[in-house]
């Protein structure tokens, strides 16, 4: 084979079908408020925000190897940023959602400076401690409601149907946007660096990859996504209490969804969130048995399918709905075969 007779493609038949199905699904979800009831929308808002935070945790842990147990900090801060912007500054609550995400991203910068001093298990515990510090600080400031919390009154003045519909659309936009963001990052040079760092940090560093800066970017982006999700969640709930907003259960949920779906894949957190919601909807009436059964499912999946459900499904026949690897297509005659997707010229990335 001559070095000049190949080209690099990333799309596959599965990814093109997946993209078409995904586009139809998003279009269908976008018009759902005109057909579905209030209960369905509330459930879907919860589902979409769960997909968002799971994607963010997966980016952080599955790709950058940063096992954070403190992402609830950014859900809580997103909620409080929404309240401050909407009730105290006077920004329209719907406009305040993206601004809350940006504020949380900014707060994550100095937080990362502190958290990144720790490694491995210490980083995990450290991020949890940082989240607890944020919770305690907020709970002790009376101006933000103290331990009893606050109500987003600016949002409660909006007509219920309008608020719920727009909140749903925001949740959908945030979920689709974060999946697109993760996909874009992982297909970029930054994604290549992230995978290299995950595989071998020292090797990546000795090739000139700026490990600290790359991880910092991912941490800030992940916090931004969690901040957006936090703002959407509490725009839906209206009442913010620090114990609930900064609860470690948020991160436990992210970890559960990512682990059962498949760590280090974009498809995994989506599959995991679907399974979680199916379990929740079907087992919710069984009281404490529900938690036992969910735990049992987690144990069985981690033992029988360590790569998660997506890994199990694609074990025999690899399918990439979100193709990330660069595949080389070679024609036996030396001619470059016609390929669709995003073909690149031979050795384009040299």
């Amino acid at each position: 084979m001559s070095a000049s007779t190949y080209r690099v493609v990333r799309s596959s038949r599965a990814s093109r079908i997946g993209l078409a199905v995904g586009a139809l699904l998003v279009a269908g979800l976008a018009v759902l408020p005109y057909a579905a009831g209030s209960g369905t929308l509330r459930t879907l808002i919860s589902f979409l925000t769960l997909v968002t935070v799971a994607q963010m945790w997966n980016l952080l842990a599955g790709y950058a190897g940063l096992l954070s147990v403190g992402q609830q900090a950014y859900i809580g801060l997103g909620a409080y940023a929404l309240w401050v912007l909407a009730d105290e500054v006077g920004v329209h609550p719907f406009v305040a959602v993206p601004l809350a995400g940006l504020i949380v991203g900014l707060i994550a910068l100095p937080t990362a400076g502190l958290a990144f001093r720790l490694r491995g298990g210490y980083f995990a515990i450290g991020t949890w401690v940082i989240a607890e510090v944020y919770r305690l600080v907020i709970a002790n400031i009376q101006a933000v409601g103290g331990g009893s919390g606050v109500t987003i009154t600016a949002a409660s003045h909006i007509a219920r149907a309008t608020r719920q519909n727009v909140t749903y659309w925001l949740a959908l936009a945030v979920a689709v946007g974060t999946i697109g963001l993760v996909y874009g990052i992982l297909r970029s040079r930054l994604g290549l660096a992230l995978t290299a760092i995950r595989d071998d940090e020292t090797s990546a560093e000795s090739l000139g990859v700026h490990v600290f800066r790359t991880k910092l970017w991912v941490y800030v982006l992940s916090s931004f996504g969690c901040g957006l999700a936090g703002a959407v969640i509490y725009l839906n709930l209206l009442r913010i209490q620090p114990d609930a907003a900064f609860s470690v259960n948020w991160t436990a949920l992210m970890i559960f969804v990512v682990v059962i779906g498949g760590v280090g894949t974009i498809e995994g957190p989506i599959i995991g969130a679907i399974l979680y919601f199916i379990l929740q909807e079907t087992l919710a009436d069984y009281g404490s048995w529900y938690l036992i059964l969910v735990g049992l499912v987690a144990v069985v999946i981690t033992l029988k399918a360590p790569r998660g459900l997506w890994g199990l499904l694609t074990e025999r026949r690899p399918v990439h709905v979100f193709p990330l690897q660069r595949h080389v297509r070679i024609d036996a005659s030396g001619e470059i075969p016609p390929v669709s997707g995003r073909p690149r010229s031979a050795c384009a990335d040299e």
Partner: peptide, 15 residues
């Protein structure tokens, strides 16, 4: 980098 292809490994080398 075991999970990257040969070509992707080379691309990281040219970082």
């Amino acid at each position: 980098f075991p999970s990257l292809t040969v070509r992707e490994n080379l691309l990281v080398g040219g970082w």
